[in-house]
């Protein structure tokens, strides 16, 4: 089956989509949220706009921002954006999204500060995604691009190094896989299958990472499970968990290891109840790799490798 897929898609699996570019998260109180994402996670505030949205970045990111916080009366994710190689690629994918049957909307340049126009579409899971090609590049924070030092001094909290991926819950996983694989050029890196072969979780990547976006089946569309940020080492994950206790931050689970992707992880909540993850390590994926499969009966071990039991919150608590 996968041989057939490779032949269909040829070697150009990426279709011009580079990586996750940004996520806009709704929060109940913008000041509390900024304290959480800046002081605790260690993101850097880079801008604000007339709507009161706050723009943040992690220090290794070259583009100006990757996280946008918007105050609203209901937490959750507004949209996740993927950066593409060119405006022409965005135009081409826009047509393909329409052909696929997606609802598509165009957002003009500067609707997000210092970002080019974006093409927004709704996936069959009910989530809004965007494609864009242009964003101001301010470079890594605190280090030069010429003879760069190893890391910048002055980082706060967990010193998150990049926005990595989102895990989203919703229905219609199969057409969502088809959309991301066949239109956008993502690979299925890991999956969870029930005994009858139904895919209940799919981890998708557009590069070498274990996942750039992941979906778990849920009857309710458009649910936000977590936004995840990358740390360098297991010790950084432990240190992050120490900070959660020091600040009495609502913790979900960890530090532990995932079976899926094998990343080392800790989960916690922002002050509005949106789940965050910081993680280190994990597997890599090349386009010729077949997907890694976990059996649904092993879901406990797949999610939490050490406990080998799923905590109920992981499946029921979302925004």
């Amino acid at each position: 089956m996968y041989l057939k897929l490779s032949k269909q898609k040829g070697v150009d699996m990426k279709n011009g989509v580079i990586r996750p570019g940004h996520v806009q998260i709704r929060v109940l109180d913008i000041d509390e949220a900024v304290r959480h994402y800046v002081d605790l996670l260690g993101l850097i505030e880079v801008d604000r706009d007339m709507e009161g949205r706050v723009y943040l970045k992690a220090w290794t990111e070259v583009d100006k921002f990757s996280v946008i916080l918007r105050e609203a009366d209901e937490p959750g994710m507004d949209f996740m954006g993927f950066k593409c190689t060119s405006e022409e690629v965005v135009d081409g994918l826009r047509e393909e999204l329409l052909e696929f049957g997606c609802e598509v909307e165009e957002l003009p340049e500067s609707e997000l500060k210092d970002c080019g126009r974006r093409v927004r579409f709704i996936a069959p899971t009910g989530h809004s995604f965007e494609l864009f090609a242009t964003k101001v590049q301010t470079g890594k924070w605190g280090v030069s691009n010429r003879n760069p030092e190893a890391w910048p001094r002055g980082l706060t909290g967990m010193r998150a190094s990049r926005f990595d991926h989102c895990l989203l819950y919703g229905p219609n996983l199969l057409p969502t896989l088809e959309l991301f694989r066949d239109v956008l050029g993502f690979d299925l890196a890991e999956q969870v299958l029930t005994p009858d072969g139904t895919r209940v979780a799919q981890f998708l990547t557009v590069g070498m990472k274990a996942h750039d976006v992941a979906f778990i089946h849920d009857e309710e569309p458009g649910k936000f499970h977590h936004a995840s940020f990358f740390l360098e080492t297991w010790h950084d994950v432990l240190r992050a968990a120490d900070l959660l206790s020091m600040t009495d931050t609502s913790i979900d689970i960890g530090p532990t290891r995932h079976g899926l992707t094998h990343g080392q992880t800790v989960y916690f909540f922002d002050p509005s109840g949106n789940r965050n993850e910081v993680f280190a390590g994990g597997d890599y994926h090349y386009p010729d790799h077949p997907p890694v499969t976990w059996d649904a009966e092993e879901l406990g071990k797949a999610i939490f490798y050490h406990d080998r039991v799923l905590n109920e919150r992981f499946l029921t608590v979302m925004t």
Partner: peptide, 12 residues
């Protein structure tokens, strides 16, 4: 009581 996000977000 079921404990969820503890942040007014999940409704549990």
């Amino acid at each position: 009581i079921k404990v969820g996000c503890r942040g007014g977000g999940c409704g549990l």
